[in-house]
């Protein structure tokens, strides 16, 4: 069985006439240690899928298996605990706590789970050793996103979920961030799922999942993913 599995997952918002099907029977799976890229245009359901996978939302129907456990029926508290220990999130807009330094932002995440990594070392890993004491407002966007990644990694999660992590960054910086994610995946054997609407990023993935209208229209594996520096868009 695959490490992560989506089986016939549906998600509906609203009711009656105004019912919107964000996911309409999505099926896919991801193996452990893979870097999966989910592609799709706006409204294709990819963010909904990621939210469900990240324990921030629950599906209307279907099964979501993570490491052999079905999380689709989790209650609120179980979901929180799941987020706490198993998931690392990286957002488009970083979402750092402005009132905490880079190090403290990482500590914030590290302190809530048991097998956390050393926050300082994690920051060092993402190349921010020198800027640990700075507040987010004193950091550039790329640096802030690195802090966000460090914050996600410090929890030593089973899954690293990234929602358009380069969306707010310029080309070069975005590339560096993607490289960091790819390296992290290779080096630490962490399963990474990355959402983007940029099809050009497809070659970097071990597994490519394409969403359209709430369904998975394509799922393919890539034996030899292209290193990020070789991708241009």
């Amino acid at each position: 069985m695959a490490y992560i599995e989506f089986k016939e997952v549906r998600k509906e918002y609203g009711s009656g006439e105004a019912k919107i099907k964000a996911l309409d029977g999505a099926d896919f799976f991801v193996e452990q240690g893979e870097l999966a890229v989910i592609l799709g245009s706006s409204g294709a359901g990819k963010t909904t899928a990621l939210n469900i996978l990240g324990g921030m939302d629950i599906p209307t129907s279907g099964q979501v298996m993570v490491d052999g456990v079905d999380i689709s029926g989790y209650k609120k508290r179980q979901l929180t605990a799941y987020r706490r220990t198993d998931i690392g999130f990286v957002f488009q807009f970083y979402n750092l706590v402005p009132n905490l330094t880079a190090l403290e932002n990482v500590e914030l995440a590290a302190q809530v789970c048991k097998d956390s990594l050393d926050p300082a070392k994690t920051l060092e890993k993402v190349g921010l050793k020198e800027r640990m004491g700075n507040f987010p407002s004193q950091l550039s966007g790329g640096e802030q996103q690195r802090v966000a990644i460090a914050r996600a990694l410090a929890k030593n999660p089973k899954l690293l979920l990234c929602d358009e992590p380069t969306g707010a960054l310029d080309y070069a910086t975005g590339k560096q961030i993607l490289q960091l994610l790819q390296e992290t995946c290779r080096r630490d054997k962490i399963t990474v799922i990355l959402i983007t609407h940029n099809s050009a990023l497809a070659p970097m993935a071990d597994r490519l999942i394409r969403f359209k209208s709430g369904k998975v229209v394509e799922m393919s594996t890539n034996e030899n993913p292209t290193p990020i520096e070789n991708i241009e868009w």
Partner: peptide, 16 residues
Amino acid sequence: ERELATIKVLGFFDRE
């Protein structure tokens, strides 16, 4: 609100 949402995502329980 945003800050609180973030720490919720990080897995803070309601009580925390």
